[in-house]
Design a protein around this nucleic acid. Sequence first.
RNA 1: GCCUUUGUGGCGGAAUUGGUAGACGCGCUGGUCUCAAACACCAGUAACUUCAAGGUUGUGUCGGUUCGAGUCCGACCGGAGGUACCA
Length: 990
Amino acid sequence: MEYNFTEIEKKWQARWAKDKTFKAADVSDKPKYYVLDMFPYPSGAGLHVGHPLGYIASDIMARYKRHKGFNVLHPMGYDSFGLPAEQYAIQTGQHPKITTEENIARYRQQMDKIGFSFDWDREVRTSDPEYYKWTQWIFIQIFNAWYNKTSDKAEDISTLVKQFETSGNATINAVCDEDTPSFTAQQWKAFSEKEQSDVLMKYRLAYLGEAYVNWCPALGTVLANDEVKDGVSERGGHPVERKLMKQWSMRITAYAQRLLDGLDTIDWTDSLKESQRNWIGRSEGTSLRFKIAVTSSNPKNEGVSRSEIEVFTTRPDTIFGVSFVTLAPEHELVEALTTDEQREVVNRYVETAKNRSERERQADINKITGVFTGSYVIHPFSGKQIPIWIGDYVLAGYGTGAVMAVPAHDSRDYSFAKHFKLPILEVVAGGDLEKESYDAKEGKLINSDFLNGLDVKDAIKTAIKEIEKRGIGKGKTNYRLRDAVFGRQRYWGEPIPIYYKNGIPYALSDNELPLILPEVDKYLPTEDGEPPLARASSSWKYKGEFDYEFSTMPGWAGSSWYFLRYMDAHNGLQFADKKLTDYWQQVDLYIGGSEHATGHLLYVRFWTKFLKDLGYINIEEPAKKLINQGMIQGVSNFAYRLLFNTAEEGAVEYPAEIIRQIPPVFFSKSYYDRWKKENKYKVDINNYLKKLNEDIKIKFPDFKGVIESDIGFQTIYVDVNIVENDILDIEKFKDWREDYHNAEFIFDEGKYVCGSAVEKMSKSKYNVVTPDLVCEKFGADTLRLYEMFLGPLEQSKPWNTNGITGVSGFLKKLWRLFYNVTQSGVEGLSVTDLEPTKAELKTLHKTIKKITEDIERFSFNTSVSNFMICVNELTDLKCNKRAILEPLLVLISPYAPHITEELWEQLGHTESIAFAEFPMCNDNYLVDDAFNYPISFNGKTRLQIEFPATHSIQQIEQEVMAREDVQKYLEGKTPKKVIVVQGRIVNIVV
RNA sequence: GCCUUUGUGGCGGAAUUGGUAGACGCGCUGGUCUCAAACACCAGUAACUUCAAGGUUGUGUCGGUUCGAGUCCGACCGGAGGUACCA
């Protein structure tokens, strides 16, 4: 019988589904192991070969742990709310739900072909009302919570209200808005319902607040910081502006320190932890208040004279080097501080600064702009007057939106001072201020009164002490992390379970959930600019009366807790039973892409900590170990189309019918390269144009013009499936796109050669390779082995199928180990019950040892090599012993489950191989009778001496020393030491 | 700029703790089988040198530690990813 993977794989995939082989038990005596993949967004392009990379790795772990006797939870689901389905809906009118369902069906079909051991009974979909009911429920818990800094955890809002009622908010140590006013218990009780609601909003962990947000006009929605890259939206690449808006947000900043501390307790990669640390961006410093000077030129200052400007600095030691103070253009005191003389220029500056988009601001990051307000502050120590400037290098969103500028020791202040010719005062010795600022935190303080002579480190401490003593500021820790914007002005997301009564937002109660996403006539904003959900507002009302919130939740909402839902996927009463969350605890192994470092992976940690604070779960971190699988990139192919001058640009006007008659013409890669590099294109192109114009003269005798091309080539993406080894299949290309059916080609040696580049796989680049073709041609087991064999899991690599025959050949060879091979082909099973030989045992146990080590350190690529070595050796030994082949099957089964399952059954087993015990290595079988021990004398001479394995190291040393050749080398000297490494003598030191 | 990560044959990549660098696979070369091809099997394959045995050089560059360095240390160069007027 030949190895027929198609039949075998179909058979076992059906059997596993029918028997529910991989169903995880809710109750078990076995230890638990939870291995999780980041669930995919079901996109229209289908699963590409990059997706399974992580899934195969996690599947190997899941299967390995089952062999090792664990109760394994290995689920899969879909992150099914998201932008692409909605964009598609806007274009075609098809309901995103339909699109999503179709895509999910495709994903499922593709995954099933690869033979994953998922427990599909636990599948979740974030867009399923039964699921988002609990996303909404968690939102309400967060809405109804505040952060108590004293107990350092989130608490129910009722405990806060109780304190307000007894003692106002003076004694409360909570995370809240900066502008929260203080009030007494009496005042609290006297507040109207609206006023009370407004106050509580400043404390809630999910709150409606006015803040600068990233507004994307093209998408018509706000975006979180991690959804914006280089000033454009991550999805779609549309420009993003800053805009002050009322928005639902999550007070993730309350958890900044815990998110930072928690990193030390989890086994994630250093690079990932580092990006989270940077994103949280803790910096220790001092807040410091500067009094505003009253001057004759600004009588208005009298009104603000009691006001102060608060700045944040990490360098309080440089306080005597302050030569000006800079405010962000959006700073609240700008208006009041501007003198009449300066008003016009300040207004103009603030206007332009505000209207500049984030992108423009980043584009001319080196351009220094700013204006003087006309006002001054008083230096707290020297009493001197210091000018107040406005500059857009100061960000409104960070710190206090104002900085004390120390040009001598901060490069940004330095360039600002140089540009506006402001004084530069040196206070730390060691730099050359003619050239650049001296930012380093080392050196001795000078020109600094009571700080003179101190080291920077000591000076910082002394300065803080003095500042605190005078009551003008205090030591403070700032975080770069911003609160997370939670509302999206989009349709395809979870409705936020809030309704408004008299302008006050109220949360729905538990029994009113889920709040189902209403149907709308169009998936666009309303004419008034309200989110799409407002289109349903005439009938979609709370109790038929009150408007719901029209924003929906962001993409990260549903994925921030899905790992908990898998533990109890069908619970209608709770998001998950506490008994089950207590049993499954953390994810033991989480595999996914590193692109989620500052998004999903931060939010899921945040929600986990929150749910723990309220006692719903008892873990602080969602995943104990996390591995980032590398991206499998695609290889894109290009064709080069010659462009003709259009009527608008060219001097001659071409009749449209003639232009239409000219077929698209593609030049092979070498022509394009020459054109790009040496600009010699004219020879090639002119030859073509000459011929073209001759043809046109015949066809259109009336046309007197000449067709030209000054533009050169347009590079177009070609579907990689119609290109092989960079050679384009011309016929398929013509069929591929309607407008190329009559295309002409200029060849290189009879072939059309495409350009190529390694890029991220994406539908628009036509470089997506799906796993389906590989499964069809070589089988799922080959695909699994090959994806692992491609290289280390965590490394990014381009997809190519060059080496796949090696892996496919390995499986054929494995199959043949079990069968008699004769002239006419592979025949009956040949496995015998004879005792294995020593050599066979050695091969097996060597492999057991290596594979166990490989899996434990996630080095799946080397295990494939080790399997190959093992099978090659057994083939050479003509081994057909059951005692060798059975354990070998178990070893290979996590990697290639179908073929091993089939052979396992043929060996007479009735139970699935999935739960067979993983073989143990017996070191005794690894020992040789004799080794060759190389001896090298300071790297010069080498001798090969054999010793029996029974010899101890001392015996070896003695025997080496007794040898004539060694004695001759030593020339009577006594050796200082004989170095024995790994049972071998390597060197003798004289 | 800063942070993380990486650099090994024609290619993908091995080498767990410093111990015979290049496992395994692809590709290539030669051979067996075949009318021929495919499959399969056998042999060779870092470079230079030598008829051969052998010798020399070799893990981005330069230095260091060590009996011994791909591995450890210092400086530099290149690739990838993250991040940024964050005070």
